[in-house]
């Protein structure tokens, strides 16, 4: 389990992390989402034991991670801007990591070549494209056989085939090795498939964190057409968002879909349909409450 307890971090006057707590249970995947500059990457650098929090703790199975070699042996971190030494090839990097990570598994490394057919053993890593570098970093990280894996925008810059390849390997490792994973990504569509828990961050805080299941059942998107005028629903429901197109009302209401449809059935309805609510929509609605929204402007 990866655990963050009341983490605070300031850079000068800027509060990057503000009493932030979270837990990644063993064998689960936690997705961090949030606007740019929310502090996701900063948080990941803390959980990887690179930054020391001003106050609060980060624990791997109860052990603090900062400057703790024992704990760090069990973790791998892929930052958004992956680092490779000058002129070094992926094989050079492998030898380097092999010297550091005791559990580095050369057999796994060799097997992974099959998954990344475009990677080349001889080209210096720095001459490769961003996408290729990410693939290489992922290959190396998985070969370290980590118990805790931290990924900052892991699929950013990857083509659809390689993105799926990475998720597939990741899911297999989570299932087989009970690896705990902390991911930050803006690719909400894909996070929806792979995460157990989601934490929405804004301004150094976690706005809310829930299992994906609870998150998706806590709001309902519904399309209704009333026989008569639309009744005043605000008294009965907590409506987060509404848009009307003629007689068709699209509502996003807090609450479970079953209860809401039952309640709406009391009215004379011509039509009612529950629509799928994506993580992306949840993200947008939650941050709208924080005054972070798309403005309509004409330039």
């Amino acid at each position: 389990m990866i655990e963050g307890i009341e983490i605070c971090k300031k850079f000068g006057d800027f509060t990057a992390l503000d009493h932030l707590s979270f837990q990644v249970e063993t064998g689960t995947v936690y997705g961090l989402i949030g606007p740019n500059g929310a502090g996701k990457s900063t948080l990941l650098r803390h959980t990887a034991g690179i930054f020391k929090p001003d106050s609060g703790e980060i624990l791997y199975d109860g052990e603090p991670v900062f400057e703790n070699h024992g704990a760090k042996q069990k973790m791998a971190f892929i930052p958004d801007d992956v680092f490779f030494f000058n002129h070094s090839t992926i094989v050079d990097m492998k030898n380097y990591y092999k010297g550091i990570y005791q559990k580095f598994d050369e057999k796994v490394f060799e097997e992974l070549w099959a998954c990344f057919p475009l990677l080349d053993r001889k080209t210096p890593m720095r001459r490769m494209s961003k996408g290729m570098q990410k693939q290489a970093a992922f290959m190396l990280a998985i070969s370290m056989r980590p118990e805790f894996l931290m990924l900052d925008e892991p699929v950013d810059g990857l083509d659809p085939v390689m993105r799926r390849q990475i998720w597939s390997i990741l899911m297999s490792e989570v299932s087989e090795k009970k690896m705990s994973v902390l991911i930050s990504s803006h690719n909400l569509r894909e996070l929806e498939d792979v995460c157990d828990h989601i934490g929405i961050m804004n301004k150094g805080k976690i706005l809310l964190q829930h299992s994906l299941e609870d998150l998706q059942s806590s709001v309902t998107k519904i399309q209704v057409v009333f026989e008569d005028e639309m009744p005043d629903l605000d008294r009965e429901f907590h409506i987060v968002s509404r848009s009307d197109l003629g007689k068709v009302h699209t509502l996003i209401i807090r609450g479970d879909s079953g209860e809401i449809t039952d309640a709406l059935n009391k009215y004379h309805l011509i039509f009612m349909e529950v629509l799928p609510l994506s993580l992306e929509e949840i993200f947008i609605y939650e941050l709208e409450g924080e005054h972070y929204e798309v403005k309509d402007i004409i330039l």
């Binding site: 899911m171 297999s172 299932s175």
Partner: peptide, 14 residues
Amino acid sequence: SVRELASSLAINPN
């Protein structure tokens, strides 16, 4: 198996 399916569909094993 859960692992096989998680890997082939690329979705969470849970």
